[in-house]
Design a protein around this nucleic acid. Structure first.
Lengths: 163, 163
DNA sequence: GTTAGTGCAAACCTTTTGCAGCTCT
DNA sequence: AGAGCTGCAAAAGGTTTGCACTAAC
């Protein structure tokens, strides 16, 4: 972070893409926010810096960054709807672990991911451009709470059955 | 396959879910089509067997099967739009390898996936319910064709620059 | 001065919802 | 009989497009 934004700007300049005021704002927000922004949140944040900035510009910018390989697009198992989430491509490849109860997202780096990548390349002669691993379930905290919820639900429906 | 549809029906019956004519059609199509159907194709196929069957019923059925853990939902890197794809959950966990040029989808089974799963469970104390790995790029066939396309593009734009 | 980029409005695509009527068990 | 399911129509949510105007280089 911090450095990343300059790398992104360079990459855009090299490709002759104009660094408009709007794009500077959006790049800056993506860079320092750190993680997992969706278009709408990014738009809300951007509007505070420039109230005239349009939602459409956010979509167009994200699309451009994605196509330029500067950000990765995630779904996070569609927790919270069908929108997409974005993160800069600074880090090493990682999996996203999302709790389907509280929504917390963890990142997992580790050799199985690299090994998978190498095996796929070797096995299929495939040229990998994008890779995404998303894992959904319950985090250690929510497993307990979830068990309790299920118990309560059972009690309620048993009650209903009794009349 | 072949067996799978009975397993699915049993699972539904056990949960007191009705096996309507429409659901039988949809289950049957999902079962024998084998792979990677999106709601619209499934709807088109189902309409041939029952012209009155509604698109909404397809969505409702897919949602139910997904929530019951009988099918998995995929995005296939949004190749071909933002719709979702579905596959039955018979097979062992696998990654989907999708060619961004020709759209061909390969499946990769292999120990890195199981290892990843075990490590995530151990590392975060996470209870995994769903896991999805999607890899996008160019298949061995398309790598060649893609190189040619890029060359042609370059020639065209050089021509344009020359006037 | 050009050409790329922006804002606005309107369209688009996929999926969901409300409700009246039908059907499975 | 009655809850569960379907079809229809309409809405919702997220994203893209056409076009006239503006700004970056």
């Amino acid at each position: 972070m911090g450095m990343a934004i300059e790398d992104m700007k360079d990459s855009l300049r090299r490709r002759g893409i104009r660094l408009t005021r709007q794009r500077q704002i959006l790049l800056d927000l993506i860079d320092k926010s750190g993680q997992h922004l969706d278009a709408e949140s990014l738009y809300q944040m951007a509007k505070e810096r420039d109230p005239k900035l349009n939602r459409v510009t956010v979509y167009r910018t994200l699309k451009m960054l994605k196509e330029g390989g500067l950000v990765d697009e995630l779904d996070l198992m569609h927790y919270g709807g069908d929108q997409h989430y974005y993160e800069t491509r600074l880090k090493q490849e990682h999996a996203h672990i999302i709790c389907l109860r509280c929504g917390k997202v963890e990142e997992f780096f580790g050799e199985p991911l690299q090994k998978l990548r190498r095996q796929v390349e070797a096995h299929f002669g495939f040229q990998i451009l994008l890779a995404r691993t998303e894992i959904g379930g319950y985090c250690s905290h929510c497993q307990v709470l979830r068990a309790k919820e299920v118990k309560d639900l059972t009690a309620v429906s048993a009650g209903a059955r009794r009349g």
